[in-house]
Nucleic acid binder design. Structure first.
Lengths: 198, 198
DNA sequence: CCATAACCGGACCGGGCGGTCAACTTTGCT
DNA sequence: AGCAAAGTTGACCGCCCGGTCCGGTTATGG
C-alpha cells in the first residue's frame, strides 16, 4: 500500500533529531511541551515537525512507542532467566530506570493515541503477565497478585520520587524495594479488593 | 493589618460556590481546568473569580489548602488512637479516600504556590512523621522506614488506579494494602537506598 | 551536472487561555 | 426609602499554542 520510498538522507537525520528532542522535551515539561520548543531544541523549523508527524499527538506516540518496545524486549529477554522472582524484580528495575529519565506515561496518557501504540502496549502487558505468572508459580510473589497489579504498580516508584525536589537519581530504587516487598508472599495480609483486568 | 471587614452575604455565598466548583473542576480535568469553566460551573461570571482570588493559582491554592487541613485534622485525631499501627493504616485510608475524589496534588504541583499552603503542608507532614514514629516504635512498621517514605507513598494508591479506565471506586484499597504490606516488618528485605529528608 | 522531487522554514491563522475593566446590580446602614 | 459601598458581569486584551502553507533550498538519479 504505502509505497515507502526510503527517506532522503537529511530527512531521516532530522527525523531522528526530532525524536530525541521530543523525548527530552516531553521528559522535562510533560505533555505541555510545545511543538515550537521541540523544533528549536532539534535546531529545526516548526514546519519540519509537521512534515514528519501529522500532529503533536502523533509525535508523542512515536516517542512512546520506542520506549514501550524497548521495555517489551527487556521483558522477553528476562522470560528466559533462571530465577523467575529476580527476573521480575530485574524487569521492574529496568522499567523504572528507563522511566527515570522521566515519565513518558505509556499507559493512560498515550492510551487514546495511535493504534500502533495500543498494540505495542498490549504486547508489553502480555510480557508482564507472563513474567508475573512465572514468578507466582515459583513462589516468589504472593498468590493473590496478578499481572495487572504489577503493570499498575510498575510506575509507582518513579511517580513517588517525582515529588521530592532535587531527588537523587537512584531514589526510586528505595520505593521499588518497598513495593516489591509488598508483593512477596512472606507476611502478606489478605487483599481487601479484587484485581482489575487491564 | 488587613482590616478584614466581613464579606457581604452574596459575596461569601459566591466564594463558597466558587471553591466547590473549582474543587470539582480541578478534580475532573486537572490543573488544565479553565477559569471560565469554573465560573460557569458555579453559575457566575468569570470576573467574579478574580475578585475573590488574585489569580488562577491563588484559587487552586485555596482549594488545596482546605484538603490539606482536613487531612492534618484526621492525622491529629489518630495520634490519640490505641493501636499506632492501625492508626497509620487508617490515616492512609482517609488520605486515599479523600484523594479518590481526585488528585489535588497537594505536594509538588501546589508547592510553588502560596506561603499558606507550604505552611499547612509542613504541619501535615509533621503529623505524618509523628504517626510513623509511633507505629515504628510499636513494631507495626519496619525499622528502616521513615515519615518521608510514607509521605511519598501516600499518593501512590490513587495514582496507580488512575491508569485503569472505569476503575471501581474502591480499587485503591487493593494497592494501599499491597504497599502497606511492604511497610511491615515481617519479611522485609534491606532497602538499597537511604530515605530522603522531605 | 542538471532537473526535479523531496524537504525545510517561518510567517501566518484561528482559537482558547488568564487576566482587566468600566458599566451595571445588589446589599445593608442610616 | 435612599444612597454609597461592595459586588457582579461579560466584552475585551495580549499572549501562546497547534497546525497550515508556500517560496526557497537541497539531495539524488540519470
Amino acid at each position: 500500500m504505502t509505497s515507502t520510498r526510503p527517506l532522503r538522507a537529511d530527512a531521516s537525520r532530522n527525523r531522528r533529531l526530532l525524536l530525541t528532542a521530543a523525548a527530552d522535551e516531553f521528559a522535562e515539561r510533560g505533555l505541555d511541551a510545545s511543538v515550537a520548543d521541540i523544533a528549536r531544541r532539534a535546531g529545526l523549523g516548526k514546519g519540519t515537525v509537521f512534515r514528519h508527524f501529522a500532529s503533536k499527538d502523533d509525535l508523542l506516540a512515536a516517542v512512546v512507542l520506542d520506549r514501550i518496545d524497548e521495555l517489551t524486549a527487556a521483558g522477553e529477554r528476562l522470560l528466559g532467566a533462571a530465577d523467575p522472582g529476580s527476573a521480575l524484580l530485574e524487569f521492574l528495575t529496568v522499567a523504572a530506570h528507563q522511566r527515570q529519565q522521566r515519565d513518558l506515561s505509556f499507559l493512560q496518557e498515550a492510551g487514546d493515541l495511535n493504534a500502533d501504540v495500543t498494540g505495542a502496549r498490549t504486547r508489553m502487558f502480555d510480557t508482564v503477565h507472563r513474567l508475573v505468572d512465572r514468578a507466582r508459580e515459583a513462589g516468589a510473589v504472593r498468590a493473590d497478585v496478578t499481572g495487572a497489579d504489577v503493570i499498575l504498580l510498575m510506575c509507582a516508584p518513579n511517580y513517588v520520587t517525582s515529588y521530592v525536589p532535587d531527588a537523587p537519581p537512584d531514589l526510586w530504587r528505595r520505593y521499588l524495594a518497598i513495593i516489591f516487598d509488598g508483593l512477596r508472599p512472606e507476611g502478606a495480609h489478605a487483599l481487601p479488593f479484587p484485581a482489575p483486568s487491564v
